[in-house]
């Protein structure tokens, strides 16, 4: 599903050049749950940004479903993104002005899903996440765990092929973190590919494989569970 060839990302400021990704070569197959670990500043988030088509690489290639998309213009990347990817962030990134229901519904407005279908899908997901009773609340009225469940619901509402999660449990206590990881594991079990950046070895082990990074390079890859 995902393949990179010598993928590099260099940030340039007035006087300093920082290499965030240094000729990274990785491959992620359909249905995998891959965790990315490494110290702060090692390039994990940059890798997630590039793979999530939010940022373009400085050099190298990025194949998504065998199509080279690393150097596509923003408009085309946005189009691929909205139909294929879902995002879960450490800080949830829910829109404060929208209710729980509206937050989950939002991605479907951009993919032009008909209204009745939207309603059905949002309700199903909120039921599944056990937050239906909070549907009319606003993000700031929810606990961290609830907010992250809403964020996960929003990430999967368009049935994306790939979910990108950037430290999804980073702002949660262990119990809520566990819940979120279980949801992700269930999603993976039902066929969704997941790429997750984390600092927690515990969370990383929910995946099939752990990629470890240092100074913008992949240093090791461990298989945790055999991918079936």
């Amino acid at each position: 599903m995902i393949r990179t060839e010598n993928l590099s990302k260099i940030y340039q400021t007035d006087e300093v050049e920082t290499t965030a990704l240094n000729e990274v070569n990785i491959e992620i197959k359909q249905g995998e749950f891959v965790s990315v670990m490494g110290p702060s500043g090692c390039g994990k988030s940059t890798l997630l940004n590039v793979l999530g088509m939010i940022d373009g690489p400085s050099s190298g290639s990025y194949f998504f479903n065998d199509e080279e998309i690393g150097h596509l213009p923003e408009r085309k990347r946005s189009n691929i993104r909205k139909y294929n990817l879902g995002f879960v962030f450490q800080s949830f990134n829910l829109i404060d002005e929208l209710s729980v229901y509206e937050n989950v519904e939002l991605p479907m407005l951009y993919t032009k899903v008909p209204s009745a279908e939207r309603k059905k899908r949002v309700e199903e997901l909120l039921e599944g996440m056990n937050i239906m009773h909070r549907r009319n609340h606003f993000p700031q009225q929810l606990s961290g765990g609830q907010q992250q469940r809403v964020a996960v619901a929003r990430a999967i509402v368009n049935n994306p092929k790939l979910i990108l999660a950037d430290e999804p449990t980073g702002n949660l206590d262990s119990s809520n973190g566990d819940d979120v990881m279980k949801i992700l594991a269930e999603l993976n079990a039902s066929g969704t590919t997941i790429l997750m950046v984390t600092h927690s070895q515990y969370c990383a082990e929910f995946g099939n494989r752990i990629i470890r990074m240092l100074d913008g390079q992949v240093v090791t890859e461990n298989v945790v569970k055999q991918y079936l």
């Binding site: 999530g52 939010i54 408009r75 946005s78 189009n79 993104r81 909205k82 139909y83 995002f87 990134n93 829910l94 829109i95 404060d96 002005e97 939002l106 991605p107 951009y110 993919t111 929003r154």
Partner: peptide, 16 residues
């Protein structure tokens, strides 16, 4: 910027 970022990540275009 946060709000715009989230919307764009979810697929909103600049025009929208």
């Amino acid at each position: 910027f946060r709000e715009v970022g989230i919307n764009k990540t979810l697929g909103a275009s600049t025009g929208q």
